[in-house]
Amino acid sequence: MKKIIIAVFFTLFLSACGSDRLAFSNRGEVYLLGNDLLCIKSKPGDVISFYSLSSSENKYYPALVSEFEINNKYPDTCIRVSLKKDVSYELIYTMNKVDYSAVFNLENDKLKQK
């Protein structure tokens, strides 16, 4: 009986972990401004309330940079960060109460979105 309870708990735990990723299923768009500003494509009226940037270099955990409960309005939608070549990145963010995910890498000093 104890093994069944542990198995059910473990299954529910894994299911909950995967659901966060599904919330950020909308494809986001980012671009590089200069050498160290990663910007979220936005327009007047857009508001960023959350973002988290992670990389393949550390297996996407912990996040390289995150901000929660913010109110960054256009044009304040850039993140100061140094990106490395041959590393994949994922930026998840909430803009206008919609969750987005942008997956990209740095190739020849330009972002290449996947």
Rank of each mutant, 00 (worst) to 15 (best):
residue 33 L to G: 05
residue 12 L to F: 03
residue 95 M to L: 04
residue 107 E to D: 14
residue 10 F to I: 15
residue 85 K to E: 01
residue 63 A to T: 14
residue 62 P to C: 12
residue 83 L to M: 04
residue 7 A to F: 09
residue 102 A to G: 06
residue 60 Y to N: 05
residue 42 S to A: 07
residue 113 Q to W: 05
residue 101 S to K: 14
residue 6 I to S: 08
residue 17 C to H: 09
residue 27 R to F: 09
residue 1 M to E: 15
residue 87 V to A: 14
residue 86 D to K: 15
residue 15 S to I: 13
residue 84 K to E: 02
residue 98 V to E: 03
residue 25 S to E: 10
residue 102 A to I: 08
residue 90 E to V: 15
residue 13 F to S: 08
residue 30 V to S: 01
residue 69 E to M: 06
residue 89 Y to F: 08
residue 46 D to T: 13
residue 10 F to N: 09
residue 9 F to K: 08
residue 6 I to F: 09
residue 82 S to W: 06
residue 23 A to N: 12
residue 39 C to A: 07
residue 19 S to E: 11
residue 99 D to E: 09
residue 70 I to Y: 04
residue 113 Q to I: 15
residue 91 L to D: 00
residue 53 L to P: 01
residue 76 D to P: 06
residue 16 A to T: 15
residue 72 N to D: 13
residue 84 K to P: 00
residue 26 N to S: 09
residue 110 K to G: 06
residue 75 P to C: 13
residue 24 F to R: 12
residue 61 Y to Q: 09
residue 46 D to G: 12
residue 26 N to G: 04
residue 14 L to S: 06
residue 114 K to P: 02
residue 73 K to P: 00
residue 80 R to V: 07
residue 78 C to V: 04
residue 85 K to V: 02
residue 5 I to N: 06
residue 52 S to P: 01
residue 100 Y to W: 11
residue 80 R to W: 02
residue 108 N to A: 15
residue 5 I to G: 04
residue 11 T to N: 08
residue 19 S to Q: 13
residue 112 K to T: 14
residue 72 N to A: 14
residue 99 D to S: 11
residue 63 A to N: 12
residue 52 S to M: 07
residue 28 G to Y: 02
residue 51 Y to I: 13
residue 36 D to P: 00
residue 98 V to T: 12
residue 5 I to D: 04
residue 4 I to V: 14
residue 77 T to D: 03
residue 82 S to M: 12
residue 82 S to R: 14
residue 6 I to G: 04
residue 19 S to W: 10
residue 64 L to E: 00
residue 40 I to H: 04
residue 60 Y to V: 03
residue 90 E to A: 12
residue 110 K to I: 06
residue 42 S to C: 02
residue 32 L to S: 04
residue 31 Y to F: 08
residue 68 F to N: 13
residue 62 P to L: 15
residue 63 A to I: 08
residue 71 N to F: 02
residue 9 F to D: 10
residue 16 A to P: 01
residue 100 Y to L: 14
residue 35 N to L: 08
residue 70 I to G: 04
residue 17 C to W: 11
residue 25 S to T: 11
residue 87 V to E: 11
residue 90 E to I: 14
residue 84 K to F: 00
residue 111 L to K: 13
residue 14 L to A: 08
residue 110 K to P: 00
residue 56 S to E: 00
residue 32 L to Y: 02
residue 70 I to A: 08
residue 31 Y to C: 06
residue 1 M to S: 14
residue 55 S to Q: 07
residue 68 F to E: 15
residue 63 A to P: 04
residue 45 G to A: 05
residue 59 K to H: 02
residue 61 Y to P: 01
residue 71 N to E: 02
residue 102 A to M: 06
residue 89 Y to K: 12
residue 64 L to D: 00
residue 8 V to E: 05
residue 96 N to F: 09
residue 110 K to W: 00
residue 109 D to T: 11
residue 23 A to M: 11
residue 53 L to G: 01
residue 31 Y to E: 05
residue 86 D to Y: 06
residue 59 K to P: 00
residue 5 I to W: 03
residue 56 S to N: 01
residue 113 Q to G: 05
residue 7 A to N: 07
residue 69 E to V: 03
residue 19 S to A: 12
residue 80 R to F: 01
